[in-house]
């Protein structure tokens, strides 16, 4: 298990991270919802790690817990070698690491001007000496993300979806972070605009040496941008490998069906491809199955799968899978 953690010089190192939410299930009854359940992985400096999985599997919660927007129920986050434990650690983390959200419409305050939106983190962290310096930084950030700096005094609602996403990114860059959790940052955008924003993420990464955790449900987008891809299911990590490897040779039964289900934008390929269609629905995380979280929909499930949680282990170099039957598949 610890092998994954021993990547050279990881910028972000997550060990046995858990995030349980306490949920009301009756008038006086509460139950833990295991949104993230014992997840370990690391992200190298300058790398993009893609994170995919079905809605509700815990992707956003992983991102937010890493940034300590939620206090971890258990487990450890080590950032650039520094374990995040005390409030001072958290303040340090918040400067170095930030988040970009999916919905450029609702994540920006429509009553604020672009310059106020981008300037807000600068204000909070008092990252300038005077007004002129503040303005200069804002204009530079706008320029960086391809926004016309003459529009600094406009309101967010006057911009298109792609432009709003740029505003969100400029804001995220304000404090010169090293690590950005990108939570579905292009999902709300049309294909053509999506490509503009994806290119910008790549350019910024190259210029500024950024490290990304890139959450998305569009596998084609994730494959394009990521060095490695991690797959989650019901709060657990089920597979992690190089993005080409996991796309072309998925090992976990869930990843196999996921990859086979990706609609291919090519009629001949689509007609010829064999989709592994899963039956049944995703169980509620409040009633997660015992053992392997995927066993209720898995065609390979045996008794052992209900008995214990399969270990997340390295089966080929850099290829991690959590499945009891991995050797027999």
């Amino acid at each position: 298990m610890s092998k994954i953690l021993e990547q050279e010089n990881p910028l972000v190192d997550i060990r046995n991270l858990k995030q349980y939410f306490s949920i009301n299930v009756g008038p006086f009854q509460r139950k833990p919802l295991k949104a993230v359940d014992d997840v370990s992985f690391s992200i190298r400096r300058g790398e993009t790690l893609g994170l995919v999985g079905e809605s509700g599997c815990g992707k956003t919660t992983v991102g937010r817990t890493i940034l300590h927007l939620y206090k971890p129920t258990a487990g450890e986050v080590v950032f650039d070698g520094r374990p995040i434990e005390t409030p001072a650690d958290i303040r340090y983390l918040r400067k170095k690491a930030t988040m970009v959200f999916q919905d450029p419409y609702s994540s920006l305050n429509p009553r604020m001007t672009v310059s106020d939106i981008i300037g807000e983190p600068l204000d909070i962290h008092k990252a300038y000496a005077n007004k002129a310096e503040r303005q200069e930084q804002i204009l530079e950030l706008m320029d960086r993300v391809g926004l016309n700096s003459e529009h600094a005094a406009r309101y967010a609602h006057e911009f298109s979806g792609g432009q709003r996403q740029r505003i969100g990114i400029a804001r995220a860059l304000a404090l010169h972070p090293e690590f950005i959790v990108c939570d579905e940052p292009v999902s709300a955008l049309d294909v053509s605009i999506q490509a503009q924003v994806i290119n910008m993420f790549v350019e910024l990464q190259q210029q500024l040496g950024l490290t990304y955790l890139f959450i998305a449900h569009d596998i084609l987008v994730v494959r394009h941008i990521s060095n490695r891809i991690a797959v989650m299911y019901l709060g657990k990590m089920v597979e992690l490998a190089d993005s080409k490897e996991i796309y072309e040779h998925p090992l976990h039964p869930y990843t196999r069906s996921l990859m086979s289900a990706v609609p291919q934008p090519d009629p001949k390929v689509a007609r010829a491809s064999h989709r592994i269609v899963l039956s049944g629905d995703i169980p509620s995380p409040l009633n997660a199955p015992s053992g392997c979280p995927f066993r209720t929909r898995c065609a390979y499930a045996r008794e052992c799968c209900a008995e214990s949680v399969p270990e997340f282990q390295e089966v080929e170099k850099g290829h991690f899978v959590a499945c009891h039957r991995i050797k027999e598949l």
């Binding site: 079905e54 809605s55 449900h217 596998i219 069906s257 996921l258 086979s260 289900a261 990706v262 609609p263 989709r275 269609v277 899963l278 039956s279 629905d281 995703i282």
Partner: peptide, 9 residues
């Protein structure tokens, strides 16, 4: 989701 989408399609 992708796998549910595949079912529906």
């Amino acid at each position: 989701d992708v796998t549910i989408q595949a079912q529906i399609l």
